[in-house]
Design a protein around this nucleic acid. Sequence first.
DNA 1: GCGCTGATGACAGTGGCTGCCATCAGCGTA
DNA 2: TACGCTGATGGCAGCCACTGTCATCAGCGC
Lengths: 176, 176
Amino acid sequence: MQAAFELYHEHGFEQTTVAEIASRAGLTERTFFRHFADKREVLFAGADALTDLMVSTVVDAPASLMPIEAAAAGLEAAGALIQEGGELPQQRQAIIAASAELQERELIKLASLASALADALRARGVVEPAAILAAEAGIAVFKVAFGRWVQVVDGQELPAVIRESFDQMKTVSAGR
Amino acid sequence: MQAAFELYHEHGFEQTTVAEIASRAGLTERTFFRHFADKREVLFAGADALTDLMVSTVVDAPASLMPIEAAAAGLEAAGALIQEGGELPQQRQAIIAASAELQERELIKLASLASALADALRARGVVEPAAILAAEAGIAVFKVAFGRWVQVVDGQELPAVIRESFDQMKTVSAGR
DNA sequence: GCGCTGATGACAGTGGCTGCCATCAGCGTA
DNA sequence: TACGCTGATGGCAGCCACTGTCATCAGCGC
């Protein structure tokens, strides 16, 4: 993972071959593919932990919370976890932003996150179509908030940006 | 396009080689790649027309419409265009649903649609963060509505499903 | 009949990814 | 201690998506 991260940063994702990554890591190409399904997956290795935290936060949230609020709580928790990564998330995002292939992979990870979020909401007793809509809307807010947080120079807290974006979404979707 | 569509339908996307597509179409593999950037792109050839229709509808919508309502109008127009395709959209979606690679490509097309939608809203004078949020929320609604429309057997109109989903989203995101 | 242009064929090459088999270190057990 | 098992790795051949390059060829204006 470290070797891949360095090489993607130095020469760009597409200019880096798996052979180079394996070589720097002191392994063979074959072994690389035993650890990662493909060349992109290296950058998304920690996604499961994020999903788990979000789901458990949603499931354990007070029953009094409305679906969209439970989703917000889960995504704020995920945001807090991301922020613990220091400057790594920003560097990772810079690599992703430079490659269409990686953006595709990120989008499907977010779609998987939305699916898990919808499941968590259903576990709270939320029925369709509210579960899917709240999940998709929540992920949409998360995408926008994360994008803002990555760009901004000053050290605003990611969970705060997420919460603020949820409030703005409420206003926008009300049509006012 | 027709050869690819048939083969993807008959044997699945991943089991189909470009050589087979080219052979059925009476061309060489090299010529296939002169018409389509890659093996997936064949299924997304008509996406530009959809984007154009959505954008022009949003730009030309009455100035009195709120951002989310303008987005809804644009996406309903896109839905109407899709519905003109007869049973093709459903068949296409069945192929996509069977392949993770194709789902990735579809998601990035939807992200591109969201970006175009945000631009169209900005052309209406909508400022940030309302433009991005309304665009992302609109695409989220569109995804859900399209998913419902594809599943449902009876002949409900796609634009009507989209409009209904927008209303439900309003309720959900209000937290009620 | 001539030259231009755009589309296609043909071919070699790169690199991501997989299947298969050999090797080897660690480890429990007779 | 020797044996056998297991899990991780190396090595290798091969498939296929995709690209660069050059030759060919049909159409078309002159």
